[in-house]
């Protein structure tokens, strides 16, 4: 089952499922790739941009906090919000140490509620065992060899 399908199945049992009507949730890899998307629809381009920016932002903030003495690594979060719109980015849960959870909301009445529930939702979703979509063998090359013809085909649009 794909990561996204697992997420959808799991979220059905969340007690505040109505939350999804007002927010978009992205599951992001530590490299900024979008692994799954729930809730309010976002365009593919917008999701990709958000993934790269949010994870870049996290890395920069994490490095910044390393400069702060007595940094507490427990449950870091990053947020940026107005009274009705913004985002929360939560650190990975214990089961899925390589997945960031981003909660993006626009035009909501009570962002505070989202803030509280986002952590609960992250923990709820963290119970899904993340298989990374990569069931392959890390010692086996995916393509073995790639021919010039295959590359020509990939880059045919550029005329090289």
């Amino acid at each position: 089952m794909s990561v996204e399908k697992k997420l959808i199945e799991k979220i059905k049992s969340f007690s505040h499922i109505d939350l999804l009507e007002s927010i978009s949730i992205l599951a992001l890899s530590v490299e900024g790739q979008v692994l799954g998307h729930l809730g309010k629809k976002l365009s593919h381009n917008k999701m990709q941009s958000m993934g790269a920016l949010l994870v870049g932002l996290w890395q920069a903030s994490d490095t910044l906090t390393d400069l702060i003495e007595n940094k507490d690594d427990e449950d870091l979060k990053l947020s940026f919000q107005s009274s009705s719109s913004g985002y929360y980015l939560l650190s990975p849960g214990h089961n899925n140490p390589k997945v960031f959870w981003a909660f993006i909301f626009e035009g909501v009445i009570n962002p505070g509620k989202i803030k509280v529930l986002s952590q609960k939702l992250r923990d709820h979703m963290d119970e899904v065992v993340y298989l990374s979509g990569n069931a392959g063998n890390e010692s086996v090359e995916l393509f073995n060899n790639v021919t010039d013809e295959e590359m020509d085909k990939l880059f045919s649009f550029a005329g090289v």
């Binding site: 990569n134 069931a135 890390e138 393509f143 073995n144 990939l154």
Partner: peptide, 21 residues
């Protein structure tokens, strides 16, 4: 520009791990 990108893309694809046994 594209010659460079094409070459690095090829090297990256050939270096990818995670093949199915």
């Amino acid at each position: 520009v594209f010659e460079t990108l094409k070459e690095v893309s090829k090297l990256v694809l050939m270096n990818l791990k995670g093949g199915l046994v």
